[in-house]
């Protein structure tokens, strides 16, 4: 039954059918709590889309539009004060010195659609990022990049955080990391996600460890 629901939900997302997605939610309203809806329907559907993108069957535009639908659905059913949203180490996401914001938007939506709360730093410089991490006591930082120079800047972020003794888990993603599998280690990130659903898995694991 669950698998059938995920199939239908995935189909609704791929055709950008917000109403169909809402109907699946409403249909199962009595059977599932909001958290169960997220964990049993949204997260698996987004995982399938992520795998589809890896295999070349699903396009980034579909992932992005699906993420928007899911983010809105979750916002509607999961109020900001629900424990799942608040009872977690502080987390933020940003794009380093680059105006390519799509990847960040996708990961942000996927995480929020999976019940996580995080600050959105948008496009940000290394110094500003380090300052905000310290001031806002961020424990998990996601950095999205498109350009190689931006990817290399992650190492500067790490170095500056080390200088001040600030411990932060850094998770990176974006084209340069996908095209060079060793780059995330070189820049001293803690993990790299190939797509938004991998980012959700990584964050879930980190949250359990922290």
């Amino acid at each position: 039954m669950i698998s059938q629901d995920v199939d239908q939900f995935e189909k609704a997302l791929l055709s950008f059918d917000r109403l169909a997605a809402e109907n699946i939610l409403n249909k199962s309203d009595g059977d599932r709590t909001p958290i169960q809806f997220i964990e049993e329907l949204i997260v698996p559907a987004l995982e399938r889309l992520g795998t589809g993108w890896e295999e070349g069957r699903v396009a980034l535009s579909q992932i992005y539009m699906s993420g928007r639908i899911c983010e809105k659905l979750v916002n509607d059913i999961l109020s900001p004060c629900v424990q799942k949203r608040t009872d977690q180490p502080r987390m933020a996401i940003g794009v380093l010195e680059d105006y390519h914001l799509l990847g960040k938007r996708i990961v942000y939506s996927a995480l929020r659609a999976s019940g996580f709360e995080l600050l959105d730093y948008g496009q940000i410089t290394v110094d500003e990022l380090v300052r905000r991490i310290k001031e806002e006591r961020i424990k998990v930082l996601l950095i999205s990049v498109l350009m190689l120079p931006s990817a290399l800047l992650v190492k500067k972020v790490r170095e500056k955080l080390k200088e001040t003794g600030t411990e932060v888990k850094i998770v990176v993603g974006g084209a340069p990391f996908r095209f060079d599998n060793n780059l995330w280690k070189e820049v001293e990130a803690d993990a790299m996600g190939n797509n938004a659903s991998e980012a959700v898995q990584i964050i879930t694991k980190i949250m359990e460890e922290l």
Partner: peptide
């Protein structure tokens, strides 16, 4: 338009 409007907004424009 990736540069004219930004990647995310452009996808929204297309759809």
């Amino acid at each position: 338009p990736i540069m004219q409007i930004g990647f995310d907004k452009y996808i929204e424009l297309i759809y």
